[in-house]
Simulated scan of single mutants.
Amino acid sequence: MSTYLDFYSSGEFASFSIKDKVEYQVSFYNINGDRDYQTNYKLAQEYFEEVSAPYKQMFIMEDMTHGLLERKSGNNL
């Protein structure tokens, strides 16, 4: 746990943040489940609309949670 906490409090961890970053030089894809309460898909949609990228696409997976396929892993899809 201490290794994680050291990394979390480092400047390196902060460099991974996408907060206020909306300009991308590469294609941007966003995949969210409509039942994802960890990464709310409506907030993700708002962010997606702000993003500028050469190509971008958003996928909303119906009846899926944060783990996407974990939600239906016992079913034949």
Rank of each mutant, 00 (worst) to 15 (best):
F13P: 02
R71A: 11
S10D: 02
G67A: 12
M1A: 14
D34N: 13
N75D: 12
D63E: 10
S27Y: 08
Y41G: 01
E46L: 06
Q57G: 07
K72I: 11
E12Y: 10
K56P: 00
N32T: 12
A14T: 00
Y29G: 05
D20Y: 03
F16W: 10
F59W: 13
Y55H: 15
K72P: 04
K42L: 13
S52K: 15
D63H: 09
E49G: 12
L43G: 05
K21R: 11
S9P: 02
S52C: 11
E49D: 14
M61S: 09
M1S: 08
Y29I: 07
E50M: 15
F13W: 05
I60A: 09
A14K: 12
M58D: 03
E23S: 11
E49N: 15
L5I: 07
S9Q: 15
S15L: 05
N75P: 06
M58W: 02
H66I: 06
S27D: 10
I60Y: 07
M1I: 09
D20E: 06
Q57F: 12
E50D: 13
T65S: 13
Y29A: 08
M61E: 13
A44F: 03
E46G: 02
S17H: 02
Y4L: 11
N32I: 10
D34G: 11
S9M: 08
E49A: 14
G33L: 01
P54Y: 10
D20M: 04
S10R: 01
F13C: 07
D63T: 05
T65K: 14
Y24F: 05
D6G: 12
L77V: 10
S9H: 13
D20T: 04
Y4F: 12
F59C: 09
F16Q: 07
Y8W: 11
L77P: 01
S9A: 08
D63C: 08
N32V: 12
N76H: 14
Y55S: 15
M61T: 04
Y24H: 04
K56V: 00
M61D: 09
I60L: 15
N76M: 14
T3E: 08
V22A: 06
Y41H: 03
A14P: 01
S9D: 11
A44Y: 01
M1E: 12
